[in-house]
Structure formats: C-alpha cells, structure tokens
Amino acid sequence: MNPIDKSIVQPALDSFLNRDVYLHLETTNGAYAAHNRESNMTVGAYIRNGRISYGRGIITGDGPYRVGLKMELGWVYAEGLTDFEMEQEGQLLLAGHDQEGRLAVALELSLHPFEL
C-alpha cells in the first residue's frame, strides 16, 4: 500500500458511482486489546461482502483521511484512513495503520466479491 493521495483515490471512488459494489468495512483495536491491557475493551466490527450502491462518495481530511459514501437509504463512513492500494482491477483498498503499522480500520470496495 502507499500513503493516500486524494487526487488518485477520489477518481477511484467516482469510478464506482451508482454501481453494485462489494464492501469490506472493519475496525479493530486487536483481539488481545483487553488481555494485553492496551484498552479496557476489545472492540471490533467487520462487514465482508456487503453489497451497496452509492451516488456520492468523497474522501476528505488532511491525513489521516475520512471517507463517506452516500447511499439511497444510508451512509458508509470510515475515519483514520492512511494508505491505499489499487493493484487489482476494479478494487480499491483503503486502510488506516497505527504508528506500529497495525491495521486499525479498513474500507474496501470491489466490483467482484472479496475472497472468503
């Protein structure tokens, strides 16, 4: 992955406008957060292959970045995004890594389902 460049990511978000896209969205503070006493709770959530369509999608902020995808009946939102990758055709990967390089948040879009 490379540090987010909005001038590349914004057109990539636009390329998915009004299409059926598969969404991977997650956030985590690590499966051992509570055990290692890094935090008093282990917190995480993920959606794998949610199918969505959005008519407006924006990346904003000065880094770390935020993304909002406006759907007919709701929103997809992520903050803390730092890096992106577009190596696979029809796929945009965005992730937020902490100072140690650990993934804390991810928002990924794809025209094809993500592998299970």
């Binding site: 985590t28 796929q91 990967l93 992730a95 890594h97 390089g101 650990r102 993934l103 990924e108 993500f114």
Partner: peptide, 18 residues
C-alpha cells in the same frame, strides 16, 4: 485473515494477508 499485524514495516494488506 483478520489479524491486525501486517508486518513492521507493514507489507500485507487485508486482502493479501491470508
């Protein structure tokens, strides 16, 4: 697949990790 450690410096992505 869902580990948060991606190497240091990180070289894996959520999709390449498995």
């Amino acid at each position: 697949q869902m580990g948060r450690n991606m190497g240091k410096p990180f070289f894996a992505t959520r999709e390449s990790l498995p």
